[in-house]
């Protein structure tokens, strides 16, 4: 209170901060990232709508590697461990994070799972985020790359509707392309939409159920792991 004249006004003191509100999450993400780098684990934050084909991409990834690389996964969903169980059946060491009502994974959730997941010898860790095109884009988990699965059935203008998610993507996996003959979808419109929200759009068409349908993705992944600098430039 003002003590000069007895007017009763409070004394307001501004405190300049300019701090990132998610600084704590970012700190934990940095800790996760250091842990991955130390162990030589290439970590993918796989995001996309519910039903965009994230789990199917990972199953096909395991088939394509055919034991040639050690894979692990953390699968986030509001409820059920179904995705993690599918990944285990595909040969990927996996754990589920049931988020309850939370619409995204954060760095702390991932960190917690790292203590419970056997990462010995693992070369690739896939963090399958909660199916959602908004919230997961906000939280750094400590990943090397952000990957967004976008299925051809979702609508040509999806990238324009959810620009933040796609702007943060290092690569977009255009999934379910084997369905294109049955759809009235112009892939060029999707590519143009992506070029309006991604500065350097990298799009890999996939058909996870088809033989050789994820070859482009496997090539990108292995190259990116072995030479991240060249591909990032």
């Amino acid at each position: 209170m003002c003590t000069d004249c007895g007017c009763g006004d409070v004394n307001l003191v501004p405190l300049e901060l300019q701090t990132r509100i998610l600084a704590h999450n970012d700190g934990t993400a940095a800790h996760n990232r250091a842990h991955f780098r130390e162990r030589g684990i290439f970590t993918v934050n796989l995001m996309g709508s519910p039903g965009s084909g994230k789990t199917a991409v990972l199953e096909a990834t395991a088939r394509a590697f055919d034991g040639g690389a050690k894979l692990a996964a953390i699968a986030g969903d509001l409820a059920t461990e179904n995705d993690a169980m599918r990944l285990v059946r595909a040969g990927i060491r996996s754990r589920a994070i049931k988020t309850g009502q939370a619409c995204h994974l954060d760095a702390e959730m991932v960190h917690h799972e790292l203590h419970l997941l056997d990462l010995k010898g693992v070369e690739y860790l896939f963090i399958e985020n909660v199916g959602n095109l908004v919230c997961p884009a906000v939280y750094d988990l400590g990943q090397d790359v952000n990957v967004v699965a976008l299925s051809v059935t979702e609508g040509e203008d999806k990238p324009l509707k959810y620009p933040t998610m796609f702007a943060k993507a290092d690569v977009v996996l255009l999934t379910k392309t084997d369905l294109l003959p049955h759809l009235n979808v112009d892939v060029q419109i999707i590519y143009h939409a992506l070029a309006r929200v991604m500065p350097n759009p990298v799009v890999i068409p996939l058909a996870a159920r088809q033989p050789g349908g994820v070859d482009g993705w496997i090539a990108w992944l292995t190259q990116r792991r072995s030479a991240p600098e060249q591909l990032a430039s």
Partner: peptide, 12 residues
């Protein structure tokens, strides 16, 4: 940006 710019405190 997701930034806490400043706060104003009431001090006695």
């Amino acid at each position: 940006e997701i930034v806490l710019q400043r706060i104003e405190l009431e001090v006695a």
